[in-house]
Design a binder for these strands. Sequence first.
RNA 1: CGCGGGGUGGAGCAGUCUGGCAGCUCGCGUGGCUCAUAACCACGAGGUCCCGGGUUCAAAUCCCGGCCCCGCAA
Length: 320
Amino acid sequence: MPKNLTETRLVFMGTTSFADAILNSLLDEKYNIVGVYTQPDKRVGRRQEIRKNAVKITAEKDNLDIFQPEKFDAAATNKLKNLKPDLIITAAYGKILPKEILEIPKHKCLNVHASLLPKYRGPSPIHNAILAGEKETGTTIMLMDSGIDTGDILSQKKIAIQSDDLHPLLQGKLADLSSALLINTIRGWLSGEIKPEKQDDSEATYCQMIKKEDGHVLWSDEAQSIYNKYRAFYHWPGMFSFWERNGSNLRLKLSKIGAIKNNPQSRHHLGEIFEISDKVGVQTSEGVVILEEVQLEGKNKLDIRNFINGYPDFVGSILK
RNA sequence: CGCGGGGUGGAGCAGUCUGGCAGCUCGCGUGGCUCAUAACCACGAGGUCCCGGGUUCAAAUCCCGGCCCCGCAA
């Protein structure tokens, strides 16, 4: 084992802004990062421009060697071997590493996973903790094995979820927490102070990749769970419903919704828009969702009052 | 040339198809009413109808070109 942490040859793999925050904290610690792996650039937006992800931008700024393999075939695997990594750190990379890769670094592969494993194994732990209305979640540093988020745990730390935390805020908190924990864990792991602990598979829960369609609001849900969905999907994919107008179903993004009003007296149709004093609500199966800002397809985001000024027939209509 | 919606007083919209007085809901200003108001009444200010060209007696509206905003898709 290298005596000095800065001599450890470290490879980082990550893609999202969460991963970027982790990478930045490793850079702050002056670790010797000999390679950065991230997902290939994707074409994005109406003009199909190529956009670099956050990790790539950071890596370029620091003149790190960047690798963006579509998959780990023989050539990609050899390239990685040539980097002679002592340790691989992954965080929200978005690719499953074949077993052969996991065996390359002598100090193995560490993964940062933003949940209290074995809870919320899978690609969307933060989203799903919010969706489920959890009061707390956390972050786990673990060794990677061939399963998905099933490896032995090195360290773990909890954090509270506030009832009005939106996904980006909670993700930011978890990134900070994870960064600090990772720094300590790397030190402890390389020095042999930390011993891996097996996960209790009987306690495991799993989450799926979030799809765009998941943002479609079901007004037959309860207001509280719709609000949780709003918090979880705030950054992506957002929340939307459909408003029928002049025979066509227009997509209406609910870009900002307010607290829930539990007034059992209110018995409108599911999805019906109505005014409550100075606010605008939508009827759910239990409670009311308050609309604060919406965006009709083809239009800009609008404060609900301005929206109704332009579309007075919105009140009384039913969202689907 | 991936598909589609849009640009009209400070905000949001209608008007465009079928060319003919610049309209609606708000906001703003002044006055009134009220114990009171995101309430009500009266009056009022505020517009190069995105830009450029064309057609026409006449263009927000029709034709050509350009700029910008947005939804989908990826």
